[in-house]
Amino acid sequence: MKILFVCLGNICRSPVLEAVLRDHVRRAGLKWEVASVGTGAWHVGRAADPRSCASATRRGYSMDRHRARQLHVNHFYEYDWLLAADRENLRELQLLRPADASARVELALAFAGLETPQEVPDPYFGADADFEHVVDLAEEFARNVLARYAKR
């Protein structure tokens, strides 16, 4: 399984989803590929937002090596799933996806079988609690995805 998380700038939501799922996958002994990108180029090459890093670190997840990347058309051929943090990024993926691409696109939380909330809210302009909420959702995502897909 190859999963690529997608958000707007690749510094808040998608790197947290990546770090949390990667850790859960590693502990489960699976050989999945997990990565993240942003649809925008504003933060390419930068580390994750310090508030995202702090909230992830408090839960035991490291994002020290993360550097923001931008979505590229090749990703639609290299990954099985491109999972959007929200509907805006899902629409962008649907518009950019080549007709012959093998990757499927979906909202991340829907992929995990979560009905509420449907989107991972962007914490960028929020408080520390908003960043903690993203980690909560990432952990719930990881548990659900492993329960649903690890035995395939």
Rank of each mutant, 00 (worst) to 15 (best):
E132I: 03
H133G: 00
A35G: 11
P15Y: 10
R27I: 05
V105A: 11
D64C: 05
L109S: 03
W32P: 12
A47F: 01
V120M: 00
P123W: 03
F111T: 03
A85I: 03
L137Y: 09
P117C: 08
H133W: 12
L82I: 10
N74F: 11
C53M: 14
R152F: 06
V134L: 01
S55G: 01
R91A: 15
C12P: 06
Q118G: 15
P15G: 07
W81R: 13
Y149V: 05
T116L: 09
F125Y: 15
Y124C: 01
R143C: 00
A68F: 08
W42C: 02
W32I: 07
N74E: 15
D122I: 02
R27N: 12
P98Q: 04
N144Y: 09
R152P: 11
F141W: 01
S52T: 08
F76W: 08
K151A: 14
L17G: 08
A103I: 12
C7I: 13
L93G: 01
V37S: 04
P123I: 02
H133S: 01
L17Y: 12
D122T: 05
A129H: 10
S102F: 07
V6K: 08
L83C: 04
R97W: 09
L82K: 12
A19I: 08
T57Q: 15
R59E: 06
P117M: 05
Y124A: 00
L21W: 10
R27H: 13
Y61P: 08
A84R: 06
R148H: 02
Y149Q: 01
H24Q: 14
A35R: 13
D64K: 12
Y61S: 03
D128W: 03
Y77P: 01
E106N: 11
R65S: 14
A99H: 14
V34P: 05
D23N: 14
G113Q: 04
A28S: 14
R65K: 11
Q94V: 10
E132R: 02
D136C: 04
G38W: 12
A150N: 01
E140I: 08
N144F: 00
G38V: 09
L96Q: 13
D100V: 09
L90P: 10
D49N: 14
S14Y: 07
F111E: 06
E140F: 02
H66Y: 00
F125D: 03
R22D: 08
M1D: 04
G38A: 10
R104Y: 03
A99S: 15
E119Y: 04
L21A: 09
F125N: 04
T57K: 15
E115Y: 03
D136V: 10
L17I: 07
T116P: 04
G113D: 03
S14R: 08
G60D: 11
E119T: 04
S55W: 12
V120P: 05
A41S: 13
V16I: 15
A54V: 02
R87P: 00
A41K: 15
T39K: 02
E92W: 12
I11L: 10
H72G: 12
L95E: 15
A99Y: 09
W81F: 14
K31W: 10
A84V: 09
L71A: 02
E119N: 10
N10T: 07
A150L: 07
L90I: 05
V44Q: 09
G60S: 06
D130C: 02
R51I: 00
A103Y: 10
P123M: 00
N89P: 11
T39G: 04
D128C: 00
S55K: 10
R26H: 12
G45C: 10
L90W: 06
A68I: 04
V37R: 11
S36L: 06
